[in-house]
């Protein structure tokens, strides 16, 4: 018994998805047009290409806001943060499912609470804590270091929650079989769970990298010297002008969105159905 309308269904899917895709991509078209336009044309909403591309790029790299250095800083922070966060949070998310007890469930629920507080409320005490590290041996983690930007986002309830929800679909029988073979608990995690959860890791990596790359409030407060500034801070400084140079900014914005877009394009390939089946 095959589906009868599958052909029409597929066409419907194409039409629907194409419309959604166009709506989604339209602003990117606007941004790319913006790279070639003058500020005035951008504000006026012009959708035709202009001839200012070279000049806009020149302005972007010649002003003293340090766009290139900020790209490097952001990349550094995002990569390290993503690796650490994925490892530590997936460890916890997996642990909460596999070693599920009443106590661990309570611990998990308490952790959930941590993502419910608006960050603005935590910022000043957090800043105080990091600034207290100045002039101590722990200064390397204190304010104005990359570590101070990364540390608060290494373990997040959000990621732990996500890993936990996904681990729920992970067949416990695989774990038990591995135990029979005498595998250690940690090895089961790294050898059985991790390889079979590429889809989860891919999604988590995209989200973490993106959040880190776009993180604004905390880096703004904690990074003091301008040679440490990240991309969002530099873009913000560019935009705060009586007469912002939007052409130049669009060049900066397009460049700064590329890493996440490229990362997404490569990682989304992990979203292939039946991954679990192949492990079985």
């Amino acid at each position: 018994m095959m589906r009868k309308k599958s052909h029409w269904g597929l066409i419907g899917e194409y039409v629907f998805l194409t419309i959604i895709a166009i709506i989604s991509v339209f602003p990117f078209y606007f941004m790319i047009v913006g790279m070639t336009s003058t500020s005035q044309n951008i504000v006026a909403g012009s959708l035709a290409f202009g001839g200012e591309l070279f000049k806009n790029f020149q302005n972007l790299f010649s002003n003293n806001l340090g766009f290139v250095r900020a790209l490097g800083n952001s990349a550094w922070i995002a990569v390290i943060q993503t690796i650490l966060a994925l490892f530590i949070s997936s460890l916890a998310g997996y642990g909460f499912v596999i070693y599920h007890t009443k106590l661990s469930n309570r611990v998990f629920n308490t952790l959930l609470l941590s993502m419910m507080v608006p960050f603005a409320a935590l910022m000043i005490p957090l800043y105080r804590m990091f600034s207290a590290l100045s002039n101590t041996p722990f200064e390397i983690f204190g304010i104005n270091t990359f570590a101070s930007v990364i540390l608060p986002s290494v373990a997040t309830a959000f990621l732990i929650f996500f890993f936990r929800q996904n681990a729920k679909a992970f067949p416990i029988s695989l774990v038990e079989a591995a135990r029979m073979d005498g595998m250690s608990e940690f090895n089961i995690f790294t050898h059985i769970y991790m390889p079979s959860s590429k889809n989860t890791y891919a999604a988590a990596a995209i989200i973490t990298f993106m959040n880190s790359w776009n993180n604004y409030l905390w880096p703004l407060v904690v990074l003091q010297s301008d040679d440490k500034r990240t991309i969002p801070l530099v873009l913000s400084a560019m935009g705060a002008s009586y007469t912002p140079d939007y052409g130049m900014m669009m060049c900066g914005i397009v460049i700064s969105t590329l890493p996440t877009a490229i990362l997404f394009f490569f990682l989304q390939r992990q979203f292939v159905q039946g991954m679990l089946g192949s492990v079985k």
């Binding site: 989604s24 602003p27 941004m31 969105t257």
Partner: peptide
């Protein structure tokens, strides 16, 4: 394409 909006600055 559909993911792009959330990374737009």
């Amino acid at each position: 394409a559909i993911f792009l909006p959330c990374i737009t600055s």
